[in-house]
């Protein structure tokens, strides 16, 4: 079995983090994102450098889509783990697909904001609010995906993936919980750019992508070595 495509899919995990981060840095979303308590002037100024912001957000938008191949690869492994009734694999595929969409659409919205910098400032602020809240708060698909992966790994009798990866998935799911608080605060650690919302979610999701990517890469390589040595023995 060729390992090239699966390996590429595994690498797309870390690649998502790298490309999206580069896009955010160009756009100016990183290192200091706008917040609910940013002034109207600050918000309008942010989007006024429209070419750079749009370019950065386009890159970030493409970056988050790199998550799809990784989700598919995880799905393949979960299907193999579950055997006859791969229900958790299906849950993971469905919710994983949703996570990709729910990351992409807000970024497209943000890109659209920079489309017309001379728009009424109130509209710009409103669109910015919507984009950010849409980006930060939909934890449902993410948590369900993580719980599905964690449970599948821990129930896997054949031990296809290391068990600690299952526990990491449970941990990541918990780390997303504070994100819904973004609806309730305009400032502080639980606002959309607060440390326990934006930063915690960013780091947690990045860690998830990197851990899954590297663990799957290791599993693919080890298995192909095993099959190669078996072929030689025969």
């Amino acid at each position: 079995m060729s390992t090239r495509v699966p390996l590429l899919c595994a690498w797309s995990g870390p690649a998502t983090v790298i490309v999206a981060t580069i896009g955010f840095l160009i756009a100016g979303v990183l290192p200091f994102p706008l917040g609910p308590n940013s002034s109207v002037t600050e918000v309008v100024d942010f989007y006024s450098d429209s070419t750079r912001v749009a370019a950065g957000l386009v890159i970030a938008g493409l970056g988050v889509c790199l998550v799809f191949p990784l989700i598919a690869l995880i799905g393949v492994y979960l299907v193999r783990m579950e055997g006859r009734n791969p229900i958790l694999a299906f849950v993971q595929l469905i919710t994983g697909a949703a996570t990709g969409v729910v990351l992409l659409v807000p970024l497209l919205l943000m890109t659209a904001i920079s489309f017309r910098p001379d728009r009424s400032p109130e509209l710009t602020v409103t669109l910015n609010d919507i984009s950010w809240l849409l980006f930060i708060t939909p934890i449902g698909p993410f948590m369900i995906q993580n719980i599905a992966i964690g449970t599948a790994i821990l129930r896997d009798q054949r031990g296809l993936l290391p068990r600690w990866v299952g526990y990491v998935n449970y941990w990541v799911a918990f780390l997303f919980v504070p994100d819904v608080l973004a609806f309730f605060f305009h400032s502080g650690p639980f606002a959309w750019r607060g440390i326990f919302v934006f930063w915690l979610a960013f780091v947690a999701y990045a860690a998830f992508l990197v851990v899954m990517g590297f663990t799957l890469r290791r599993a693919i390589l080890d298995e192909s070595k095993l099959h190669a040595s078996k072929a030689v023995a025969v």
Partner: peptide
């Protein structure tokens, strides 16, 4: 399918409650 297990060095002492991965969580 079987995960290739890397050889682990035996610690010889102590028993991890549950399993090592649990403590990551």
């Amino acid at each position: 399918s079987q995960r290739v297990r890397r050889p682990t060095s035996p610690t010889g002492e102590g028993r991890t409650p549950g399993e090592p991965g649990l403590w990551v969580f």
